[in-house]
């Protein structure tokens, strides 16, 4: 009975161990606005709280804004945080199977790059 239980447990754990952790293009990287582990856990709360303040009250928290996230974490290759499978937002969200709604409206491009391209 015990053996059966442990082998079952092993079977359940195997896929998790076998699945590789996502490899992501962290863009420029470097010092983040908050501790990295904390951000992994709480970035959505920052974004969600910040969006209401920004839209409704005009309180634009530049440090914790989506634009600032993208400024650092968009790939240095294509200036995007969502363009490829290993882009910063995409790779993690795909691994965790959490749908991101942000980029149906928001641009996933680094603003400086966007401005450069559109300054015709």
């Amino acid at each position: 009975m015990k053996k059966l239980f442990f082998s079952l447990l092993l079977c359940l754990c195997l896929p998790a161990w076998a699945a590789e952790a996502p490899k992501l293009d962290i863009g420029k990287g470097g010092q983040c606005v908050e501790d990295a582990q904390w951000m992994r856990k709480n970035h959505m709360h920052l974004l969600k709280h910040g969006r209401d303040d920004a839209v409704r009250k005009g309180l634009r928290d530049d440090k914790h804004s989506l634009k600032n996230c993208i400024e650092c974490h968009a790939s240095t290759k294509d200036d995007s945080a969502i363009a490829r499978d290993d882009s910063f937002c995409v790779s993690c969200h795909r691994y965790e199977a959490v749908k991101i709604d942000c980029f149906e409206c928001h641009s996933g491009k680094r603003k400086s790059a966007w401005l450069q391209r559109n300054a015709k």
Partner: peptide, 28 residues
């Protein structure tokens, strides 16, 4: 229609209503 490549300062997207914002991002 679905939109891509929006201005990072002006998010816009399919299925929502929009209008003149008085360029609120510039006013701010």
């Amino acid at each position: 229609e679905p939109l891509t490549d929006q201005n990072p300062d002006v998010p816009r997207g399919k299925g929502t209503v929009e209008s003149c914002t008085l360029c609120v991002h510039r006013i701010d």
